[in-house]
Design a protein around this nucleic acid. Sequence first.
DNA 1: CTGTTAGCGCTTTCAT
DNA 2: ATGAAAGCGCTAACAG
Lengths: 351, 351
Amino acid sequence: MDESSTFSPRQGGPARLDDVATRAGVAKSTVSRVMSGEATLAIREETRQRILKAASELGYSPDTRGRALRLKRSYTLGIVVPEIDNPAFGAIIRSAQKAAIERGYSLFISLADKDQPDADLYRRLVEGSRVDGVLVTTVSDTAFVAELRRRSVKYLLVNREIESEPNSIIVDYIDGTEQAVAHLADLGHRRIALISGPLRQYTGRKRLEGFRRGLARASLTFDPALVEECNYGWYEAGDALSRLLHSSVDRPTAICAANTIVASGVIARARSLGLSVPADLSVIALLDAALSVMQVPAITAIQYPFEELGRRAVLRLIDLIENAPHPLSERLAPIGLSLRETTARASTNIP
Amino acid sequence: MDESSTFSPRQGGPARLDDVATRAGVAKSTVSRVMSGEATLAIREETRQRILKAASELGYSPDTRGRALRLKRSYTLGIVVPEIDNPAFGAIIRSAQKAAIERGYSLFISLADKDQPDADLYRRLVEGSRVDGVLVTTVSDTAFVAELRRRSVKYLLVNREIESEPNSIIVDYIDGTEQAVAHLADLGHRRIALISGPLRQYTGRKRLEGFRRGLARASLTFDPALVEECNYGWYEAGDALSRLLHSSVDRPTAICAANTIVASGVIARARSLGLSVPADLSVIALLDAALSVMQVPAITAIQYPFEELGRRAVLRLIDLIENAPHPLSERLAPIGLSLRETTARASTNIP
DNA sequence: CTGTTAGCGCTTTCAT
DNA sequence: ATGAAAGCGCTAACAG
């Protein structure tokens, strides 16, 4: 029997509700009431102080497992993020975590991997009632979302849309891409090309749609020969530019690149082909990233409110969980265009 | 009373142990034994099959909360990662998560933030017995580690070292930096400079030490004027180069840059100052990243086994938790140097 | 080989 | 204003 046994609640583990109760000379239930800060229930101020004192002396913090078991709520949200190459995700998860903490929740972040199907990671989160709800960012797979619904898991699609599914919040890629095209058109460009990500993906499709709308608004006709797909790789982006330049007699004078990496690859290839950016070729990135300003010339790019997206997503998911009134789908407008050094007036000396 | 009540275990929630037991016509404990796959305990094959069938029909998966409460183990590990600007962390958490899943654990990833002190995030993980142990990557704060020890939390320092603390696993920044200097010296460089991260940080100090050792090994004398600190920013790196060039009459012919972003900033500035890389100035990044190959010229850089680091870290932490024999500190050797295009022989026409 | 029972730490009626 | 007791879902000790 060591001398610390008078103070230490038990062998070595953390203090429990019972320990605090004993020390304060009250029942567990009273401590519980005080700890959960129930304003409604009245507790004598003197008792409350005694309990608070005992709790802090013992370094008590409620056990999440017991709490979760009893409440059938873990106060934890889940999210799976794909390869972090996408600069948007850093902003989303950072702001999402922050919003979650503000509302008394934790965010369980999980990382997608080639070897590990996204859906499996979501299942790991959802099974065993580990989380109260999930933010779905990676899966556009309708079957999986149906599975979530069937299990009556609370979820919200983030930057993904599924037909007849109002549970989503997105950033307006269509609008942003339209703005990019408008900027180029305003600079006098008539031959504007798109080097897009895979068109089978949601974001790829949205950008293509915005591209077409931008063209239409500027009264330019859409030419399928001016659209190239690439897999978001730097080298591949260069290859896409080469294809673009070789295939059409009338080469484009401006390029919309899916993101900053693609833009960077395009610029490097243009230069190695003897084309000067922006004098001979304007390039705009449809998605900004830190990389943009770490290039010479710095890349003009479209910016989206990803911080706001993560924040709103968490807030809405919590509302869903807590059965608050259920808002419809949300669409966040782009922040706008960060004008830097890779776009310029279309040169008139090109035939 | 809806017609599905015969099949559905209860109102709407997921199936429980009791539901499976009832359906299979056995007791909860038997189901529990089967589910946890106890090889030791014998169970009649026929019963086992019946239980497995019932479980799969009900889509049963054990509730982590009940399990954690009973076992006093959550089978979850925690990690806090700083701003993802550091390319090492992506590799670390990805491989860490993978290793954790392989061993039947989950990894709770949390993101550090300017507004949210790292220690608070660790506390969120540790308090309430949310995790069985933590990987400490961001805090070199001795007091915090002492707190973990006092709470008898299982932890492992990852890429951090604290005196008299054997609980750590690191990548050998000293060796890697030494290799970088050796490479430069082999190319005939005598005036080699270091543009390092903040020297108050662990990694900054280690790189400085490796730098000095590399110099010594090449029989070059260490000149404090050839060391500049910068805060890992792209612009700041350029400024550091400018200072370096202006301060000494005998300018360096080669630069060791803390990481790829710093190297990129240095190269851009060098160019704007009329210095050609690598003809006039060799640049090597002391930490590789995807960015290296997205530059022209591509950046020569040192590579470390971060995948292995994350993997080993998780494995060791689990050993610690499961009271397996306790290995000493581990130090992983650098993978080596990725020779690309920013280093070349020292030109002899510079005085 | 399988069932019964107790209890992990918590919150919440229901009493007093 | 506070206490006693039940029970969330699970596993392990103990019976049988």
